[in-house]
Protein backbone atom coordinates (compact mmCIF):
# COMPACT_ATOMS: atom_id res chain seq x y z
CA UNK A 1 0.00 0.00 0.00
CA UNK A 2 1.30 3.44 -0.98
CA UNK A 3 0.19 6.36 1.15
CA UNK A 4 1.25 9.96 0.64
CA UNK A 5 -0.16 12.49 3.04
CA UNK A 6 -0.31 16.27 2.83
CA UNK A 7 2.52 16.78 0.33
CA UNK A 8 3.37 20.45 -0.13
CA UNK A 9 6.04 22.02 -2.32
CA UNK A 10 6.66 25.71 -2.92
CA UNK A 11 8.97 27.47 -5.38
CA UNK A 12 9.33 30.88 -3.80
CA UNK A 13 5.85 32.41 -3.64
CA UNK A 14 4.33 29.85 -5.99
CA UNK A 15 2.80 26.68 -4.57
CA UNK A 16 3.59 23.77 -6.89
CA UNK A 17 1.74 21.32 -4.60
CA UNK A 18 -0.63 22.19 -1.76
CA UNK A 19 -1.47 19.52 0.77
CA UNK A 20 -1.87 16.70 -1.77
CA UNK A 21 -2.58 13.20 -0.48
CA UNK A 22 -3.05 9.91 -2.25
CA UNK A 23 -3.20 6.20 -1.52
CA UNK A 24 -2.85 3.22 -3.84
CA UNK A 25 -3.13 -0.56 -3.42
CA UNK A 26 -0.79 -3.14 -4.88
CA UNK A 27 -1.53 -3.68 -8.56
CA UNK A 28 -3.56 -0.48 -8.82
CA UNK A 29 -3.17 1.86 -11.80
CA UNK A 30 -3.36 5.47 -10.64
CA UNK A 31 -3.63 8.28 -13.20
CA UNK A 32 -2.64 11.78 -12.23
CA UNK A 33 -4.25 14.21 -14.64
CA UNK A 34 -4.41 17.95 -14.93
CA UNK A 35 -3.51 20.85 -17.21
CA UNK A 36 0.08 21.95 -17.77
CA UNK A 37 1.60 23.35 -14.56
CA UNK A 38 -0.89 21.46 -12.40
CA UNK A 39 1.88 19.84 -10.35
CA UNK A 40 1.82 16.34 -11.88
CA UNK A 41 5.58 16.11 -12.47
CA UNK A 42 6.32 17.72 -9.10
CA UNK A 43 4.16 15.08 -7.37
CA UNK A 44 5.92 12.22 -9.16
CA UNK A 45 9.35 13.79 -8.50
CA UNK A 46 8.61 13.95 -4.78
CA UNK A 47 7.38 10.34 -4.76
CA UNK A 48 10.56 9.31 -6.64
CA UNK A 49 12.80 11.14 -4.17
CA UNK A 50 14.20 13.51 -6.78
CA UNK A 51 12.81 16.48 -4.91
CA UNK A 52 12.03 16.80 -1.25
CA UNK A 53 8.59 18.00 -0.19
CA UNK A 54 8.43 21.04 2.07
CA UNK A 55 5.96 19.14 4.21
CA UNK A 56 3.95 15.92 4.16
CA UNK A 57 4.82 12.27 4.53
CA UNK A 58 5.28 9.13 2.45
CA UNK A 59 4.70 5.55 3.52
CA UNK A 60 7.52 4.20 1.40
CA UNK A 61 11.18 5.08 0.93
CA UNK A 62 12.21 6.48 -2.49
CA UNK A 63 14.27 3.38 -3.30
CA UNK A 64 11.05 1.33 -3.31
CA UNK A 65 9.85 3.31 -6.31
CA UNK A 66 10.81 2.71 -9.89
CA UNK A 67 10.92 6.00 -11.78
CA UNK A 68 10.49 6.51 -15.51
CA UNK A 69 11.06 10.11 -16.63
CA UNK A 70 9.01 11.70 -19.37
CA UNK A 71 11.94 11.89 -21.78
CA UNK A 72 13.78 8.63 -22.33
CA UNK A 73 16.81 8.62 -20.04
CA UNK A 74 19.02 6.25 -22.01
CA UNK A 75 22.44 6.25 -23.64
CA UNK A 76 21.68 6.40 -27.35
CA UNK A 77 25.07 4.99 -28.41
CA UNK A 78 24.72 1.89 -26.22
CA UNK A 79 22.64 -1.13 -27.18
CA UNK A 80 19.45 -2.08 -25.40
CA UNK A 81 21.27 -4.81 -23.45
CA UNK A 82 24.19 -2.51 -22.59
CA UNK A 83 21.84 0.13 -21.21
CA UNK A 84 20.06 -2.46 -19.11
CA UNK A 85 23.37 -3.98 -17.96
CA UNK A 86 24.79 -0.57 -16.96
CA UNK A 87 21.77 0.38 -14.87
CA UNK A 88 21.49 -3.13 -13.40
CA UNK A 89 25.06 -2.76 -12.16
CA UNK A 90 24.32 0.69 -10.76
CA UNK A 91 21.23 -0.80 -9.05
CA UNK A 92 23.65 -3.40 -7.59
CA UNK A 93 21.58 -6.35 -8.79
CA UNK A 94 23.03 -9.65 -7.59
CA UNK A 95 22.67 -11.31 -10.96
CA UNK A 96 23.03 -8.62 -13.59
CA UNK A 97 22.62 -10.91 -16.60
CA UNK A 98 19.52 -12.52 -15.15
CA UNK A 99 17.97 -9.07 -14.52
CA UNK A 100 18.82 -7.97 -18.07
CA UNK A 101 17.35 -11.18 -19.55
CA UNK A 102 14.17 -10.81 -17.51
CA UNK A 103 13.69 -7.21 -18.68
CA UNK A 104 14.32 -8.13 -22.30
CA UNK A 105 11.64 -10.83 -22.01
CA UNK A 106 9.20 -8.56 -20.19
CA UNK A 107 9.55 -5.73 -22.71
CA UNK A 108 9.54 -8.07 -25.72
CA UNK A 109 12.83 -6.59 -26.89
CA UNK A 110 14.93 -9.76 -26.88
CA UNK A 111 15.26 -9.53 -30.68
CA UNK A 112 16.49 -5.93 -30.41
CA UNK A 113 18.89 -6.53 -27.51
CA UNK A 114 21.96 -5.76 -29.61
CA UNK A 115 20.48 -2.75 -31.39
CA UNK A 116 21.69 0.70 -30.42
CA UNK A 117 18.97 2.53 -28.53
CA UNK A 118 19.33 5.47 -30.89
CA UNK A 119 18.06 3.30 -33.76
CA UNK A 120 14.86 2.17 -31.96
CA UNK A 121 11.39 3.57 -32.52
CA UNK A 122 9.94 5.93 -29.91
CA UNK A 123 7.71 3.16 -28.57
CA UNK A 124 10.57 0.70 -28.13
CA UNK A 125 12.78 3.38 -26.54
CA UNK A 126 10.01 4.03 -24.04
CA UNK A 127 9.85 0.28 -23.32
CA UNK A 128 13.57 0.25 -22.53
CA UNK A 129 13.05 3.40 -20.46
CA UNK A 130 10.36 1.62 -18.44
CA UNK A 131 12.43 -1.57 -18.22
CA UNK A 132 15.24 0.38 -16.53
CA UNK A 133 12.70 1.73 -14.05
CA UNK A 134 11.70 -1.87 -13.31
CA UNK A 135 15.24 -3.27 -12.89
CA UNK A 136 15.16 -2.95 -9.12
CA UNK A 137 11.84 -4.84 -8.87
CA UNK A 138 10.02 -1.84 -7.40
CA UNK A 139 6.68 -2.25 -5.69
CA UNK A 140 5.58 1.07 -7.14
CA UNK A 141 6.37 2.28 -10.66
CA UNK A 142 6.14 6.01 -11.39
CA UNK A 143 5.63 6.98 -15.03
CA UNK A 144 5.78 10.63 -16.07
CA UNK A 145 3.73 11.13 -19.25
CA UNK A 146 4.70 7.71 -20.61
CA UNK A 147 2.75 7.95 -23.87
CA UNK A 148 3.87 11.44 -24.88
CA UNK A 149 5.38 11.51 -28.39
CA UNK A 150 4.08 8.01 -29.26
CA UNK A 151 1.82 7.22 -32.17
CA UNK A 152 -1.57 5.52 -31.43
CA UNK A 153 -0.32 2.01 -32.22
CA UNK A 154 2.77 2.40 -30.02
CA UNK A 155 0.57 3.89 -27.30
CA UNK A 156 -1.76 0.88 -27.43
CA UNK A 157 1.15 -1.55 -27.06
CA UNK A 158 2.60 0.51 -24.22
CA UNK A 159 -0.65 0.42 -22.25
CA UNK A 160 -0.88 -3.32 -22.75
CA UNK A 161 2.59 -3.59 -21.25
CA UNK A 162 1.76 -1.28 -18.32
CA UNK A 163 -1.48 -3.22 -17.75
CA UNK A 164 0.46 -6.46 -17.52
CA UNK A 165 2.75 -4.89 -14.90
CA UNK A 166 -0.25 -3.93 -12.76
CA UNK A 167 -1.70 -7.42 -13.15
CA UNK A 168 1.56 -8.81 -11.79
CA UNK A 169 1.09 -6.72 -8.62
CA UNK A 170 3.10 -3.60 -9.33
CA UNK A 171 1.40 -0.37 -8.32
CA UNK A 172 1.66 2.06 -11.24
CA UNK A 173 1.26 5.80 -10.78
CA UNK A 174 1.34 7.70 -14.05
CA UNK A 175 0.81 11.28 -15.06
CA UNK A 176 -0.82 12.24 -18.31
CA UNK A 177 -2.52 15.19 -19.89
CA UNK A 178 -4.45 12.86 -22.22
CA UNK A 179 -7.53 12.45 -20.06
CA UNK A 180 -8.88 9.51 -22.11
CA UNK A 181 -5.85 7.48 -20.93
CA UNK A 182 -7.05 8.00 -17.37
CA UNK A 183 -10.59 7.05 -18.28
CA UNK A 184 -9.58 3.91 -20.19
CA UNK A 185 -6.71 2.44 -18.16
CA UNK A 186 -6.70 3.79 -14.59
CA UNK A 187 -8.30 2.24 -11.52
CA UNK A 188 -8.04 5.56 -9.73
CA UNK A 189 -7.87 9.11 -11.04
CA UNK A 190 -6.28 12.03 -9.21
CA UNK A 191 -7.07 15.46 -10.66
CA UNK A 192 -4.61 18.24 -9.96
CA UNK A 193 -4.85 21.93 -10.89
CA UNK A 194 -2.47 24.66 -9.76
CA UNK A 195 -1.00 22.27 -7.20
CA UNK A 196 -4.34 21.44 -5.57
CA UNK A 197 -5.96 18.04 -5.56
CA UNK A 198 -9.49 18.52 -6.95
CA UNK A 199 -10.54 14.89 -7.11
CA UNK A 200 -9.37 11.39 -6.17
CA UNK A 201 -11.38 8.29 -6.93
CA UNK A 202 -12.38 5.77 -9.59
CA UNK A 203 -12.85 7.07 -13.17
CA UNK A 204 -16.51 6.09 -13.12
CA UNK A 205 -17.10 8.34 -10.12
CA UNK A 206 -15.29 11.19 -11.84
CA UNK A 207 -17.46 10.65 -14.93
CA UNK A 208 -20.59 10.93 -12.82
CA UNK A 209 -19.23 14.03 -11.12
CA UNK A 210 -18.38 15.86 -14.32
CA UNK A 211 -21.38 14.60 -16.26
CA UNK A 212 -19.40 12.82 -18.93
CA UNK A 213 -22.53 11.09 -20.22
CA UNK A 214 -23.70 14.40 -21.73
CA UNK A 215 -20.28 15.64 -22.94
CA UNK A 216 -17.27 13.66 -24.05
CA UNK A 217 -14.83 12.94 -21.21
CA UNK A 218 -12.30 15.61 -22.20
CA UNK A 219 -14.91 18.36 -22.58
CA UNK A 220 -16.45 17.37 -19.25
CA UNK A 221 -13.00 17.50 -17.63
CA UNK A 222 -12.38 21.02 -18.95
CA UNK A 223 -15.80 22.07 -17.72
CA UNK A 224 -14.97 20.58 -14.30
CA UNK A 225 -11.78 22.65 -14.12
CA UNK A 226 -13.75 25.80 -15.04
CA UNK A 227 -16.27 25.07 -12.30
CA UNK A 228 -13.39 24.95 -9.82
CA UNK A 229 -11.96 28.22 -11.03
CA UNK A 230 -9.04 26.80 -13.09
Amino acid sequence: MLVADGLTKRYGERAALSDVSLSARAGELVAVIGPNGAGKTTLLSILAGIQAADSGSLSRAPDEFGWVPQQTALYAKLTVAENLRLFARLERRDDVEQAVGRMLEQTGLRERADDQVGTLSGGNRQRVNIAIGLLADPTVLLLDEPSAALDPRQRERLWEFIGSLAESGTTVVYSTHVVQEAERYAHQVIVLADGERLFAGPPSEFERLVGASELDFEAAFVSFLHQHGH
Binding site: A48, G49, I50, P62, D63, W67, P69, Q71, T72, A73, L74, Y75, A76, F87, L90, E91, I132
Partner: peptide, 13 residues
Amino acid sequence: EENAFLRLVRGLV
Protein backbone atom coordinates in the same frame (compact mmCIF):
# COMPACT_ATOMS: atom_id res chain seq x y z
CA GLU B 1 21.46 15.88 -22.76
CA GLU B 2 20.57 12.17 -22.67
CA ASN B 3 18.32 12.80 -19.63
CA ALA B 4 20.26 10.21 -17.66
CA PHE B 5 21.42 12.63 -14.98
CA LEU B 6 18.30 12.55 -12.80
CA ARG B 7 18.06 8.79 -13.14
CA LEU B 8 21.68 8.44 -12.03
CA VAL B 9 21.49 10.76 -9.05
CA ARG B 10 18.18 9.25 -7.88
CA GLY B 11 19.91 6.98 -5.42
CA LEU B 12 22.27 5.24 -7.89
CA VAL B 13 25.17 7.65 -7.44
